[in-house]
Structures are given as structure tokens and as C-alpha cells.
Amino acid sequence: MAQILVVDDSATVRNEVSGFLSNQGFDVATAEDGKDGLDKLKADSGIKLVISDVNMPNMDGLTMVEKIRGEMGNSAVNIIMLTTESDPRMKERGKAAGVKGWIVKPFNGDAVVGGIKKLVG
């Protein structure tokens, strides 16, 4: 069972983020887009945190968040977006959908590991 699910269409980002988090002692799973992320989240009840990109093929990250909240409820899992998007309106949409935090790429693991630990518990 994984604790964290990293959802990104970029293999580079998936490798970088999951590698960093694994080195920090987390069990990490990855998914290639929102649809894959939703499927993997439903199949693994151990996931406490989803770190997801926004702009992805097949299903974008914010649609995935809305589906998670719609199908699994607000308390099922914590969600952080990791994206090149910094448009406040996009953040507002994420916030309204139940996103807990926002990271603008590039990922700076050292700067966010404390917050991630807090969310994973």
C-alpha cells in the first residue's frame, strides 16, 4: 500500500518527485494522468496524499480532484497540486474543489517536505 500518489504525465516529474519522497521514507505510487490517478486511488485505500499536475491528457488534474471529492468525499484524501500554473483563478478553482495546497513547478522537495509530512501524518 502506498501513502502518496504522484500524478503527472511527465515521466521526468514522476521520477523526480517519487524518487525524492521515497528517499524521505514514504511509500509512493505514480499515475500518468487524472484518469489513471483516479483509478489507482480507488484501488488503494492506504493513500493519504495525492500530488497532482493540472495540465494532463485524458483527464486534467482539477477534474480528477472534482471527481475524487464527488465520488469519495472531502475527507478521503489530501490533495496538493504541483503545476506550472500560478493563475490565481486556477488556484481558486482548486481550492473550491477541495485542494489543500499548491506548488508551482519546479518541485523543490526540501522546501515542501515538512508540509507533506504534516498531511500524510
Partner: peptide
């Protein structure tokens, strides 16, 4: 106030 790469909590 949040730099790129850092986590902004909502």
C-alpha cells in the same frame, strides 16, 4: 509571497 517550488497551503 509564495515562491516557485514551495507549498502554499489553502
Amino acid at each position: 509571497m509564495v515562491s516557485a517550488g514551495e507549498l502554499e497551503f489553502f
